[in-house]
């Protein structure tokens, strides 16, 4: 569950004021809005990468407003993935577990699981350079999921993909949501993606959030 309570975010000239929202546990929620309306800033604030000027962020039953990103128990997939150029796909998938000093057997079992789930088995030794857009997004997704976060934040994961990869990754996202029950918050400006994948659609309009009725 994600609860945002009367949150104010300031980032440069941009300001989002008094925003409140609730993402129910295990739900798939899309966050929509025009380019530059603050979707990414809101996501970064939930992730702890941008400080909240006022208000609270609650994940699960913990107030994480003052916690470091590392302690918030979430997975974050930024736009275009932001993969690590020096690491192989396998190293991406094991990253969060190595940081947590998990035993080697546990790490390799988890990497194998994720690789199967995300269809990355034959790419494990490759580096990001030369991967397709869809492959990159699957690696970024696997990297974020590895430590089994409560909450997964996705920033326009489908926007830079061709139609075929878009279909594929949409199916992967739906599968992940079904199988893991992770709470998903997916930022997009594409209405079609939002209504196809999400159970709920939130919209930022003029600095306020509105819940949209589900499309028929």
């Amino acid at each position: 569950m994600i609860v945002i309570d009367d949150l104010t975010v300031t980032s440069g000239a941009f300001r989002l004021e008094g925003v409140s929202l609730e993402v129910p546990p295990g739900s798939y929620t899309a966050l929509m809005g025009r380019t530059g309306c603050g979707k990414t800033s809101l996501l970064e604030t939930i992730a702890g990468l941008l400080p909240a000027t006022a208000g609270r962020v609650i994940i699960g039953d913990r107030d994480v407003t003052r916690l470091r990103p590392a302690d918030r128990g979430l997975g974050y997939v930024p736009q275009d993935g932001a993969l690590f150029p020096t690491m192989t796909v396998a190293e991406h998938l094991s990253f969060a577990l190595r940081v947590r000093r998990k035993p080697r057997t546990e790490v390799s079992a988890r990497v194998a699981d994720l690789a199967r789930q995300l269809d990355l088995v034959r790419l494990l030794d490759r580096r990001p350079r030369g991967l397709s857009g869809g492959e990159r997004q699957r690696v970024a997704l696997g990297r974020a999921l590895a430590a089994r976060p409560e909450v997964l934040l996705l920033d326009e994961p489908l926007s830079a993909l061709d139609d075929e990869s878009r279909e594929e990754l949409s199916a992967v996202l739906a599968g992940i949501h079904r199988e893991t029950g992770v709470t998903l918050l997916h930022v997009t400006h594409n209405r079609e993606d939002a209504s196809r994948l999400a159970q709920r659609i939130l919209r930022i309009e003029d600095g306020r959030l509105e819940l949209q009725p589900p499309q028929p």
């Binding site: 970064e44 992730a47 702890g48 990468l49 470091r68 990103p69 590392a70 918030r72 979430l74 997975g75 974050y76 930024p78 932001a82 993969l83 690590f84 150029p85 020096t86 690491m87 990253f95 969060a96 940081v99 947590r100 970024a140 990297r143 974020a144 590895a146 430590a147």
Partner: peptide, 29 residues
Amino acid sequence: IDPRREAVALTLGCSRARAFWWVALPEAG
């Protein structure tokens, strides 16, 4: 070097120092 990669490392459990050692420095080699 794109600083968002270090930001992602922070969300994956890294301290700022570890994000530097594991992500930024290898890229700066």
